[in-house]
Simulated scan of single mutants.
Amino acid sequence: MVSRTRLKSLLTGLALYTMAALIVGYFGVNAYTGKYGLNARQELDQEIIALTSELARLKRERMQGEQRVSLLRSDRVDPDMLDERARFQLDYANPRDLVRTVTPR
């Protein structure tokens, strides 16, 4: 009788320690590989770097577009820019212009 209670208490303690180790292991694995874990943090950092460079590129592109639009404002129209845009949109060329056609390969 004494050995059965001792075996039961030993198995109960072992089961509790095993369950505690499994729970700690579960949270440890999720801390490393989970949605907000260490690996996810590295991926988010890489995505932040990529998006920051894309933002810088888009800002430069916008500045260039704003500069071109400012040349077409009604209060100060650049004649060369107006001529270029009109020819491009109407698909016209001046008879004195040299036109090169490029065919895709």
Rank of each mutant, 00 (worst) to 15 (best):
R57A: 13
D83Q: 07
R76L: 15
E66Y: 08
V99P: 15
Q89N: 09
L72Y: 01
N94S: 14
V69Y: 07
R62H: 09
Q89A: 04
L82R: 13
D75P: 11
R62D: 03
Y92H: 12
Y92I: 15
P79T: 00
D75R: 00
E66F: 11
Q64T: 08
L58S: 06
L82I: 01
V77F: 03
R73W: 08
F88V: 13
R60E: 10
D91N: 14
D91R: 09
D78A: 04
R96K: 12
M81G: 03
D91L: 10
V99L: 11
Q89C: 08
R87E: 06
M63W: 10
R57K: 13
L90W: 01
L71K: 07
F88S: 12
N94W: 13
P95F: 02
Q89D: 08
R85M: 13
M81H: 02
L90N: 06
Q89R: 13
A56D: 03
Q67D: 08
R62M: 13
R85W: 05
R76M: 14
L72E: 00
A86N: 05
A56Y: 04
S74T: 05
N94M: 13
L71P: 04
F88K: 14
A56G: 02
R68L: 15
V99F: 02
N94Y: 12
L58C: 04
R68Q: 12
S70N: 03
S74F: 05
G65E: 04
R68F: 10
D97A: 08
N94R: 12
S70H: 04
M81K: 11
E61Y: 06
L71N: 01
A56P: 07
V77Y: 00
R60K: 12
Y92R: 15
P79F: 01
R100S: 10
P79W: 01
R57Y: 08
D80N: 07
R76E: 07
Q89L: 15
M63G: 02
R87C: 09
G65Q: 06
M81C: 06
L72Q: 02
E66G: 06
D78W: 01
P95A: 00
G65Y: 09
R87H: 12
Q89I: 14
L72W: 00
L58A: 04
R76T: 04
V99N: 02
R60A: 05
S70Y: 04
M63F: 10
V99I: 12
A93T: 06
F88H: 12
D91P: 12
M63A: 04
M81N: 03
P79L: 03
E84H: 12
